[in-house]
Amino acid sequence: MAVGAWKTWRGRKGPVWLGWLVLGAWGAAAAAVAGTAAVAWLLLGSPGLDAPERLSPADLDAIATRAFAVVAGLGAVAALVISYRRQRLTEADVAREDTRLFTERFTAASAQLGDERPAVCLAGVHALAHLADDAPTRALRQMCVDVLCAYLRMPYDPEPGPLPGGASRERREEHRRRSREFAALREVRHTVLRVIGDRLREATAWRGHHFDFTGAVFDGGDLSGARFTGGRVDFSGAHFAAGTVSFSGAVFAGSRVSFRGAVFSGGTVDFTRAVFSAGEVSFGQAEFSGSRVDLGGARFSEGVADFTGARVTAGRLCFGSGAPASGTPPKGLREAAAAAPDVVRLPLEWMSAAEH
């Protein structure tokens, strides 16, 4: 049986080591039987082996029964090894099929996102989001997130300004065309932020991933209530140019969040009731030159937020409207407030502490 099984395994396309594995398992089983017999022999006082003069039919039947039992046991071991190998092959086949299907869906969704037609781009956004939801591994989910963030980092022309009075008909038509194109593109970008925010508000597998918004232009978007817990969130060099970007009620806990070098030049950035606890949030070297940045009601843990080197020249950086911010004042904030007292509004508690 052993020789036949060996030839069968050798004839298959599977790896040669499977045959050695079965032989090894048989050897282990035989060794276990021999060991058990040896222990029993020692416990019985090492009796001598007296060969019988004649074996009765009953003795022969008993020997045959035990021999068949041993053979059956070895066959069971082989069957277990084959079953285990078959299961491993099945799992590997399933994993390969899942990866193949993921790759096909990812390619199609990425092509949609890169299409010139805004409606197709919107379909690509939702396709990539759902693909990230279904991703079989964390690495594949991160790949979907990276593509969505990369879309926001693409060059983004500003909204066409108003036409001067007396503009020609051709210029008015061109202006309307550009305005429609801009509005459609802005809708795609805001949808990207919306689907990210939707996933981060719930306890989904998106939490803990990296979100790279370096150099992205923001002219609106809703990340309110999002929980950035773990991972890295990078707004370095981002430009908050118009509209309202809402981080209201967002939680930054255990993440490394960088706004370093970001420019706040227009619109409103809403951090009201945001929670900064653990991790690191850096507004270092950020430029506040026209936006209203509202951190009223925000809660800061000691050593988390850093405004070192921030430049405040215009707009409003507000920590004290409505419900004042609480906790430990961010590093470098008092220096920024002293340089622009008419622009930075601190809670009375922080101002009193600064005076002492």
Results as ranks from 00 to 15, higher is better:
residue 3 V to E: 14
residue 11 G to K: 15
residue 13 K to V: 12
residue 14 G to Q: 14
residue 15 P to E: 03
residue 16 V to F: 15
residue 17 W to R: 06
residue 17 W to L: 05
residue 18 L to S: 02
residue 21 L to P: 00
residue 22 V to H: 03
residue 22 V to N: 06
residue 23 L to S: 13
residue 24 G to Q: 14
residue 26 W to H: 01
residue 26 W to M: 01
residue 31 A to D: 04
residue 38 A to S: 06
residue 41 W to R: 06
residue 44 L to H: 12
residue 55 L to W: 13
residue 57 P to G: 06
residue 58 A to T: 12
residue 59 D to W: 15
residue 66 R to M: 14
residue 66 R to T: 15
residue 66 R to L: 15
residue 68 F to Y: 01
residue 69 A to V: 15
residue 70 V to W: 08
residue 70 V to I: 12
residue 70 V to S: 05
residue 75 G to V: 08
residue 77 V to N: 04
residue 79 A to R: 13
residue 80 L to F: 09
residue 84 Y to L: 15
residue 86 R to K: 15
residue 89 L to T: 13
residue 99 T to D: 14
residue 103 T to I: 02
residue 121 C to D: 08
residue 124 G to H: 11
residue 125 V to C: 07
residue 127 A to I: 11
residue 128 L to Q: 02
residue 129 A to N: 13
residue 129 A to I: 06
residue 131 L to M: 02
residue 132 A to L: 15
residue 135 A to S: 09
residue 140 L to P: 04
residue 143 M to C: 05
residue 144 C to L: 10
residue 147 V to F: 13
residue 148 L to W: 01
residue 153 R to D: 07
residue 154 M to T: 08
residue 158 P to V: 09
residue 164 P to D: 01
residue 164 P to A: 14
residue 169 R to M: 11
residue 172 R to H: 09
residue 178 R to L: 06
residue 181 E to D: 01
residue 181 E to T: 00
residue 181 E to R: 05
residue 185 L to H: 12
residue 189 R to Y: 07
residue 192 V to M: 01
residue 197 G to I: 07
residue 201 R to F: 13
residue 201 R to E: 04
residue 208 G to K: 05
residue 208 G to R: 06
residue 211 F to Y: 15
residue 213 F to Y: 10
residue 218 F to T: 05
residue 219 D to W: 03
residue 222 D to C: 00
residue 226 A to H: 03
residue 232 R to S: 07
residue 232 R to C: 05
residue 236 S to R: 11
residue 237 G to K: 11
residue 243 G to Y: 06
residue 248 S to W: 10
residue 251 V to W: 13
residue 253 A to M: 10
residue 254 G to R: 04
residue 255 S to I: 00
residue 258 S to D: 05
residue 260 R to C: 13
residue 260 R to F: 13
residue 276 F to L: 09
residue 276 F to E: 14
residue 279 G to W: 11
residue 289 S to A: 14
residue 291 S to N: 01
residue 295 L to A: 04
residue 295 L to I: 12
residue 295 L to Q: 00
residue 297 G to D: 10
residue 297 G to Q: 00
residue 299 R to Q: 07
residue 304 V to L: 03
residue 309 G to A: 04
residue 310 A to V: 11
residue 311 R to S: 07
residue 313 T to C: 06
residue 315 G to P: 01
residue 320 G to H: 10
residue 320 G to W: 08
residue 322 G to Y: 03
residue 322 G to E: 01
residue 323 A to D: 11
residue 332 G to N: 02
residue 332 G to F: 12
residue 333 L to R: 00
residue 336 A to V: 09
residue 340 A to W: 10
residue 349 E to F: 11
residue 353 A to M: 15
residue 353 A to C: 08
residue 355 E to Y: 08
residue 355 E to R: 14
